[in-house]
Amino acid sequence: MSVLVFAENFKGTVKKSAFEAVHYGHKLAAEMGTDCHAITVGSVSNVSDLGKYGASKIHQIASASTVDFDSQQFSKAIGTFAKNIGAKVIILSHSSQGKSLAGRLAIRLDAGLVTAVNQLPDVSDGFKVTKSLFSGKAISTYSMDSEVKVLSLIGNALAPEVVNAAGEVVPSDIELEASKLTVVETKTVEGTVPLPEAELVVSAGRGMKDPGNWGIIEELAETMGATTACSRPVADADWRPHHEHVGQTGVAIRPNLYIAIGISGAIQHLAGVNNSKVIVVINKDPEAPFFKAADYGVVGDLFDVVPRLNEAIKKAKAG
């Protein structure tokens, strides 16, 4: 009986979401009176950091694969490993890898599955866990009765704390099967935190009038160290790249701070951002629906307000 966390890495570095998952696994293991194991695939430089956040043992599967991630291949390897150590709960990040793996592992291990969980399970009476549904418009509590359970943890749901668990790193004798996929190319946006992982997000919409006006948004994002996002019509019109589109049909995010600039706050937009901890809305129309979902609102012309906000943040950072 133990808790097993699949700790994702990106190009050999443990992802932020993996630290969150390990810390979640650690807390759950403590409640269940067991240990939290982590498993990684490939060579990972800062793998021992997983111990800091709660992994008592870190198992490394070596990989000489042509792909960095293949859900079919990983499901077999991690599924076998989970059976070997008798893992009762398997925890993944609710990320592109974790989402593709969660359903597969649930089938392989004949386990119950709840994806995108946002809190620690309640194990006082059975095993109950909550997640948000309807793009953040509802919350539901699930009961899991199966012997083995698979959970994927949504990003930014809990802040990993340093607990300094044993963190012993051991090579695993599990081998990856040959993958049926071959990677041709990986293109990443360098230098910025990907939207699903970002803690600070600056987002703009049609109120910007023209793609040539995005300079003030990029400046503000740079001053804050934030990632940029946009509303759907802006991405549809190719004013901004499509991976920036947030909302019900775009990326769903839950940063600590979301600043919405010149976005009206349509229900489909809110669906992707309403789990943000703090929402600031800048809009010249005091009737814009977004103000109802906001913590702080600024009624004004974004072309005046945004540069002013940028200066104020610079000043605060300098002082």
Partner: peptide, 16 residues
């Protein structure tokens, strides 16, 4: 293997 016990609406924002 899993069942939904309860649905709730999230607590709204307290006001801007």
């Amino acid at each position: 293997k899993v069942s939904i016990d309860q649905y709730e609406l999230p607590a709204g924002k307290s006001g801007v």
